[in-house]
Design a protein around this nucleic acid. Structure first.
Lengths: 228, 228
DNA sequence: CGCTCAGTTGATCATTATCAACTTGGGTGG
DNA sequence: CCACCCAAGTTGATAATGATCAACTGAGCG
């Protein structure tokens, strides 16, 4: 039986708006979910019965066109909330990037609980606003940046994110395939691969064993990401 | 002196969560703003002292790269809220697309008021979620659709939006320049112009005097927008 | 009346996609 | 334990979509 009070991401997540006692109420409507790499959590259009919180691992959320073209709209890491922007049906599909644990809430029950805890609602509004800001940044990347700028922006984003959640932010973990990076950045796997090779040869990054990347010059990468 | 109770967009906006009496409190912290075409409301990075609600006209919000490349992240129409996704500083610039009226709220005061009106907070959360869903749709458009699909999606979006706010949804008003469309869709003005010409010659749309566009077949446009 | 800006159209270019072959590495079964 | 297998990644050659550069049109406005 899981305990919210002992949750490893409690400090990162929306639940940190609650006291220990209040957390008990939340605990009663939550359960755990475990996913293996590539396993689907839900599909776009399915009835949105639950919302989730990532506790370990990583998720990707994406939208598909009928011919198979895919746009990954976000990656979610420990502490991230999954299920905002959802009314009756999920607006996107969600899938595990690697072995991932989530905690699951019944949507109805959680919404009912929210009425007693306006603090949590305020926190969710803040989270939604942060996600909106991220989405706008991503639109700038997708609509106006070159392949090089996109990759640089992406690596920096991962680094900042890692720092925010207390992981090491310089040699960063890159559990994401070229295909997923491509579908996130509006490129093809080949272009991603070539661009990373370029960054490597120009000395801006180094690929380390175990899917890690060392950013050799944050400053140079930031300039590149902003097109300077 | 403006009156929230007589506001033309009251039904469309976040304020509709309030009773007449509660609306008085809101009234006291609001004032009116009038902008002419092209006039700037605020710039990215400026201290975010106010939030706004569009009452008539249309706004665009955008982000810039240092070399002048621009990504418009959204157009705002009567009833739309402006200032979500903002913490201390505005995350984007905002400018009037045509002659536009807004009502303005002091951020601090509004946030203070929110504590007394959790209904409004819930409403804002809903609005933020809707915006997130729109943003995700836009990412799909920017990252994975062709020029033709982008233009078709955009015209349909305008039509749906007009319907939602009670305007006529078929010959749609298009107060937006080719340049702005291009910066919204990640294209150039030339490509927008050529693509619209193509849609026109294939009989899917007709340009009418007064910047109106008639969508000749919603179904065909929808198929095109989804890449079918 | 002419000026300016938005829009259109044409010619050419370049970035990135596409198609294809090959390499690498991790996991599994013989 | 080794060898094989498959998926992910890399690299190369060519193609295509949309960008760029340029000239021209037309409408609104001083």
């Amino acid at each position: 039986m899981s305990s919210c009070a002992a949750c490893p991401v409690r400090d990162l997540s929306f639940c940190n708006a609650l006291s220990d006692e209040e957390l008990d109420h939340l605990n009663r409507v939550s359960s755990d979910v475990s996913l293996t790499t590539g396993q689907s959590l839900f599909d776009e259009g399915a009835p949105a019965d639950h919302v989730f919180n990532v506790t370990s691992g990583a998720m990707k959320v994406y939208k598909l066109l009928s011919d198979g073209r895919r746009q990954i709209t976000g990656f979610l890491f420990p502490g991230d909330f999954l299920g905002l922007s959802t009314r009756d049906a999920y607006a996107y599909s969600a899938e595990a990037v690697c072995s991932t644990q989530l905690c699951r809430f019944n949507r109805q029950k959680l919404e009912h609980l929210l009425r007693d805890f306006p603090k949590v609602e305020r926190r969710l509004l803040g989270i939604a606003n942060d996600e909106l800001a991220l989405a706008q940044e991503q639109m700038l990347i997708l609509g106006r940046k070159t392949a090089k700028e996109k990759i640089a922006s992406f690596l920096l984003m991962l680094s900042r994110r890692a720092k925010k959640s207390g992981s090491q932010s310089n040699p960063i973990a890159l559990p994401i395939t070229r295909t997923d990076m491509a579908d996130f950045l509006g490129l093809t796997t080949e272009t991603v691969s070539r661009t990373i090779t370029q960054l490597k040869s120009s000395g801006l990054i180094t690929l380390l064993p175990g899917n890690e990347v060392r950013l050799e010059s944050l400053e140079a990468l930031e300039d590149m990401a902003e097109g300077e």
